[in-house]
Simulated scan of single mutants.
Amino acid sequence: MTQINARLPVAVTGATGAQGGATARALLRAGRPVRALTRAVGSPAARELASLGAELAYADFDDPASLTAALDGAGALFAMSTPFGTDLDTEIRQGTALLDAAAATDSVRHVVLTSASNADRSTGIPHFDSKQRIEEHLATLDLPWTVLGPAVFLDNYANDWTLQALREGVLLLPMPADTPIPVIAADTIGAFAAHVLAHPDGYTGRRIDIASQWRTGHQIAAAITAASGRPIRCEQVPLSVVETYSADLAAMFRYFQQVGLAIDTEALHAAHPTVDWRTAEAWAADQAWEL
């Protein structure tokens, strides 16, 4: 049986970003102490978390001593990794270093690792396969764990690159506009992670792919239209164009088209009725669109 001391803080990596920030806020709302791990303890995002009650701790994935210090006395860990801004080898090295540091503590009793849907299936998508390597390393450690595989991030439709096109009235998507894909908001990932950490016994050793719903590009564009008041249409971007920017992302969207993700959202939601499964429409309504 997994025993997490609820008085000890949950260490949250990526706390100043979308997933980690959402998880930190969900834990704080549930009354759980949070230790936000970040290299930028003085950043606005870090200061906002501190104002909500989070403890800030400096942590650099390339500095094992800082990871050891940041995790000392934490009862659990929300772990995530990303190759964006670095590279795949760096992601694997940093991700395994974080998990090794957690395993070396006397206090961490559960790790929730966010990966990607289907990342355990040797997809051939570079940034999915790097996450598979980290998942496999976690399974070798003497730590209770849960792996979450989020589907396509709705939050990516409000980032700088997408906003530029939205201001021209277009949602660019490297998929047929009428093909449904499973989507999820960062807030829902955070809510699910907090749920797992509140009920670790039911999730130890489990890997769960998660999504709020299936939506086509047309439906996502309609949700943004309704929320922003700006008419938005969805247009498919050829994979050959995506390839010129990122072979990794082109491989992902090619996989989505040729193989696809498989998440039974109806069964998932029935098994977890207390999680806020934020719809694309609700997510879009919450955004401060400046189009």
Rank of each mutant, 00 (worst) to 15 (best):
204 T>E: 13
187 D>V: 14
122 S>L: 13
148 L>Q: 07
183 V>E: 07
150 P>M: 06
108 V>C: 01
152 V>I: 12
82 T>S: 15
112 V>I: 10
83 P>G: 06
155 D>M: 01
86 T>P: 01
138 L>E: 03
152 V>W: 14
105 T>M: 06
135 E>V: 03
109 R>K: 13
183 V>D: 06
103 A>C: 09
147 V>I: 15
129 D>Q: 09
153 F>N: 12
121 R>Q: 15
141 L>I: 05
67 L>S: 09
171 L>T: 05
89 D>W: 06
140 T>Q: 08
73 G>C: 04
199 H>W: 02
63 D>P: 07
140 T>M: 01
68 T>W: 00
85 G>T: 07
89 D>F: 11
197 L>N: 09
72 D>H: 04
182 P>T: 03
165 A>C: 00
144 P>H: 13
92 I>S: 10
85 G>L: 12
136 E>F: 02
177 A>T: 15
126 P>W: 13
128 F>D: 08
162 T>L: 10
111 V>M: 08
130 S>F: 01
105 T>L: 03
190 G>R: 02
98 L>G: 06
149 G>C: 05
161 W>E: 14
115 S>P: 05
198 A>P: 07
134 I>E: 07
118 N>G: 00
146 T>H: 03
162 T>A: 15
157 Y>T: 14
191 A>E: 15
98 L>T: 10
153 F>R: 11
144 P>Y: 14
73 G>Y: 11
81 S>E: 14
125 I>D: 13
194 A>L: 09
204 T>F: 03
137 H>I: 01
70 A>L: 08
66 S>N: 06
202 G>T: 09
134 I>V: 15
187 D>Y: 00
184 I>Y: 12
109 R>C: 12
82 T>R: 09
85 G>C: 11
189 I>V: 15
149 G>T: 04
69 A>V: 14
119 A>Y: 04
182 P>W: 08
204 T>R: 12
111 V>Y: 04
110 H>F: 04
127 H>Q: 01
184 I>A: 07
127 H>F: 15
62 D>E: 15
184 I>R: 04
200 P>L: 04
68 T>V: 14
95 G>K: 04
